[in-house]
Design a binder for these strands. Sequence first.
RNA 1: GGGCCCGUAGCUUAGCUUGGUGGAGCGCACGGCUGAUAACCGUGAGGUCCUGCGUUCGAAUCGCAGCGGGCCCA
Length: 1077
Amino acid sequence: MRIIKETEFCSWRLLVMIEEVNDKYDAQRIETGVQELWRTNSTYEKVRAHRKDGKKLFFVDGPPYPTGKIHLGTAWNKIIKDSLLRYYSMNNYHLQDRAGWDMHGLPIEVKVEGVLGFKSKKDIESYGVENFIDKCKEFAMKNKGDMTLQFQRLGSWLDWDEPYMTLKDEYIEAAWWTLKRAHENNLIDRGERVVNWCPRCATAIADSEVDYEDKTDPSVYIKFKVNELENTHIVIWTTTPWTIPSNMAVAVHPQIEYAKVKAINSRGGTENLIMAKDLVENVLKMGRYTDYEIIETILGVDLTGYSYEHPLSDIIPKQSEFEHNIYLAEFVTAENSGCVHIAPGHGLDDFEVGVKHNLPIFCPVDHEGLYTEDVGKYAGLNVKEANSTIIDDLEARQKLISQTSIQHRYGHCWRCKSSIIYLATVQWFIKVSEMKEDMLEEIKNVEWTPEWAGSSRFKDWIEGARDWCISRQRYWGIPIPVWKCDVCDSLDVIGTKKELMDRANIDNDIELHRPYVDQVVLDCKCGGNMNRVEDVFDVWFDSAVASWATLNFPQDSETFEQWWPADFITEGHDQTRGWFYSQLGASMIAFGKAPYKSVLMHGFTLDQHGKKMSKSLGNIVEPSEVIEKYGADTLRIYVLSTSAPWEDLKFNWEGVANIHRLLNILWNVYRFPLPYMSLDNFNPLSVQFDDIENHLRMEDKWIISRMNTVIQEVTEYMEKYMLHRAVRKINEFIVEDLSRWYIQLIRPRTWIEADDSDKLAAYRVLYDIFVTLSKLIAPFTPHLAEEMYRNLQLNVYNDALPSVHMCDWPEVNKGLQNIDLEKQMRIARSIVESCSNARQKVKRKLRWPVKRIVISAQSEDAVSAARKLETVLKDQANAKQIEVVDVGSQWEELGVVAVPETSKIGPEFKKDAGLVIQAIKTTDASLLYKTFKESDEVELYISNGEKVTINRDMVNFTETVPEEVASAEFSDGIVYVDAALTREIESEGFAREVIRRVQDMRKDMQLAVEENIFVSILIEDERVRELVFDLKDFIAKEVRAEELRISGSEVPEGDRLKDWDVESISITIGLTPSKKR
RNA sequence: GGGCCCGUAGCUUAGCUUGGUGGAGCGCACGGCUGAUAACCGUGAGGUCCUGCGUUCGAAUCGCAGCGGGCCCA
């Protein structure tokens, strides 16, 4: 036999055995440790490689914008994604999971302009587009790097090394290819339309880029002189006086009733005004008219014969060339004056009226919001600043009725916050209006969570969608790949880089950004030169093509065929108008179908009061703040469990602290048995489940069953994207089942100091539960799961998979599920809780055993629970005996008291009532009770000798319990706790009081669990001394005392001395560790 | 102004589909437990279920109107 040296033994034990762990759940230590482990072991790569033969699952990451800092909402977004992807991976899915970045667009241009101190596009031109683009790229790349680290700190696993980036040439090609498809399908349109325009950025912006915010604007009523009538004006209202120079018409509603009013103005003059009849009072009051008279009322449809004179035609020469007529329009409402000022160059509805009636689209405003030469003296003025000048000019011409201001929601540029204006310009459009019906059909094939995200919200949005303006007059974006001939105006749309290089005969590689592509000139068939149109794409077009761009399509169509369309995506509800929509649009163009099969729409993070987090409110919570304080796993499980994914999340620090506490409980549960296992050299390899299966107690079978039920529930919830319920089920299992119950039940078994199969069974069960639990929590708290798994599996099994995230998702073992037992244990817990309640009533602490508890069952389940789980009940209720009273029976030791019902007796017996009451009170109540069980009426003799008949209504029975018995209701009946004292019970009670205090002192002295001690105790009270003496050996064993002295006079000695007051008895305890003697 | 969603104890929430005396956690007060101990258990106080109207024998739950919040739109 080989003798193993101590050192060898130790190192072997450290290598192979489960380790003891820190006292306290230390998220920082665990998470940085685990992430380091992942890095050094390339765990992510291994996990993905491990599933490469699995079922394919194509996930597309909605690309965040590289602002530099993640916020709580984006953290939540990535956490949801990560949890689901980890879950799918464990379910043997081969994942396509590139992270994505949306790196072009105005936000970055605006930031870079800010850094460089630029005010307008002219500054960019003089700085050089090439230099400017470089700065934008640098900015985007730097922020992408910063944010990647922040996302990774959350534990988010995506392909961070090979993310898709919209600024890459291969990505740009995907956008180009898509536009070419649109061109081939006749879905693009170039034309003059009214668009949202940011004068500062000097570009069109999409509807989705317009933020609506409160703003104060002028509110003015103006009158236009009607040509055909004497001294008559038509009244219009506007909040944009600067559009008056562009006025071309007035619109009225055909069915609204209008009035010609003779009004007396404040100067005493008389004039005739036309406006909606119902609004006369209001308008005239605004214009301070002193009196009025309605001369005539006519319908709008009869106003169309009139024309009017532009109020500023003397200033604006062009206006005297135009005709100004009154037209009908359905959009007119009976508000303000009921007559609408129409400037076709500055409004959507206005533009339509203009087109319908062939009016010139007069738009004398340039790209920077300055008037052009077309408007005479206003030329060069900023339109917004011209408002007051124009009002003054109207006033001077007596065309102004009133001038006030109004606060209303008005559109602003999403980036620079300038007020937008509407301008008629030539832009490129995707004809969404032509695709709408197909889009609506297609979204029915998508699985939406929640259901209304698709069926209501998204549907509504698509129904109202207009053509999508995809062109921007900017620099940092995907150049629109259209080349136009200088001579014949014909167009070429280029689909790929190669196509461009072939067409232009370029050999050297070129970058596809501006200004490089702008220099490429193509030959036209007509012999002319073709130059690229200057515009870049709306940045929403970039991310719209993500689902194929991330697969490197069109370069690689094989991968595309294998994966596309996406199996699932998940983003916030703002993306209804954003990415859900833009992707669908682009995909309809390119492939005629939706690019995703399943969409989980998630909510927004709000502050604790339900307000949105914003800088101006100062209520922003940074993810990093939460992580520093509590760790990423806490943040993850907090956001996942607090609300349903699709609801908004009200962030609350208290809630986070709660979750942290929960993880601490899990940690405590997990570490609790480790010292014992380690001390016992417990080896899961040599104690297999089969070995202990015959030694399982009911509670062991119960926790195993619970574990399986929880697996089942969590799996079901995950399949429905109900992450909150999945996580809550796990939390409940950890706190209720494991911590508060199972661990309490098995504690005594872990203290057995022998190679005992009862103990080994508990170890093995706990071990299996922990291992299973580590897998079950892996998608949600990946760090803690990995830490547990590492200790429990990697330290034990040489052939264990290197990461918990490589493991298969736990399967439900139906054979180990026992729903009846789960129900019975629930009842047993309820009984124990009720016992505590009853004990409190008779003031008997749990340390003191009770003689017996009587369980009066009201259901068969309660009877079987009490019988089957008798041991559990005895232990937990600290009772010597359990008695069960069957359903329908009553505990025979209960007494009853008969309480006369005077309201029934009085009317019946009149003057004898008093005697009847007396008789009921004095007769044997239990006999009376039994008799009434068999008969409705009972005869009684009253004290005057007469016999009376009383019925059941006349007596109420109240149960009485014996002395020293307390009762309490539980879920399925009543428990009676018999707390009567016996010498044996008192002895045990005091013994436990002593044990408890010695243990307290041991703990205080920080003695090791296995360390032996000497104890001496002074108890002057003779009776109690004898009671304690009865259990001297028991006490000694419990506290690991080599020697225990109990005396009535001898003052104790020891390293530590302490006086205790036990039930008003003074006890002094002295304690010394054996090794110090 | 419109669409969708949310509103339950001081805080976070379950229950709402399918109507039948509103349940938990945190916090608070009191008591208990004790080799998981900066953990844990019991008891108690604490609710106009946002408001109003309606349907119904009966409404947190169904309908209508309004208020407050969120997202989106005009």
